[in-house]
Amino acid sequence: MGAQAKLGAFRLPPLPTIGEIIKLFGLRAQKQLSQNFLLDLRLTDKIVRKTGNLKNAHVYEVGPGPGGITRSILNAEVANLLVVEKDTRFIPGLQMLSDAAPGKLRIVHGDVLTFKLEKAFPEHLQRKWEDDPPSVYIIGNLPFSVSTPLIIKWLENISKRDGPFIYGRTQMTLTFQKEVAERLTANTGSKQRSRLSIMAQYLCKVQHSFTIPGRAFVPKPEVDVGVVHFTPLVQPLINQPFKLVEKVVQSTFQFRRKYCHHGIGILFPQADRSKNTEKMLMLADVDPTLRPAQLSILHFKNLCDVYRKMCDEDPNLFTYNFRDELRQNKSKKRVKDTDGDND
Rank of each mutant, 00 (worst) to 15 (best):
Q201S: 03
N276D: 15
I212N: 01
Q207S: 10
V225S: 07
Q192N: 10
I198P: 07
R257V: 00
S209I: 05
Q235D: 06
S274I: 07
P241W: 12
V245P: 14
A216F: 11
Y259D: 09
E278V: 00
L283F: 07
V228S: 12
C204E: 11
P221T: 04
A200L: 04
N187R: 12
D272Q: 09
M199A: 09
K279I: 12
V245C: 15
V206T: 14
V249S: 08
V245R: 15
L281Q: 00
K191M: 06
G263I: 08
P219V: 04
L203S: 05
F176L: 01
Q207T: 05
V228T: 04
V218L: 06
R256T: 00
E278K: 13
V225G: 00
K205H: 11
C260W: 03
S251E: 05
A284C: 07
K258A: 12
C260K: 09
D272A: 05
Q192P: 01
M199V: 00
T252A: 13
P213M: 09
Y259H: 14
M280F: 01
I264K: 02
A271E: 15
R257T: 02
T211E: 02
R257N: 12
T188W: 05
K279L: 15
S190W: 09
N239Q: 05
E246M: 07
M280E: 12
K258S: 12
A284L: 03
V245S: 15
R256N: 05
T173E: 04
K178Q: 12
R183P: 06
Q250N: 05
M172L: 15
V249H: 14
F210Q: 13
Y259P: 00
P236F: 09
C260S: 13
R193Y: 15
I198C: 11
S197N: 12
F210E: 11
F268N: 11
T252R: 03
Y202P: 00
M172D: 11
R256A: 05
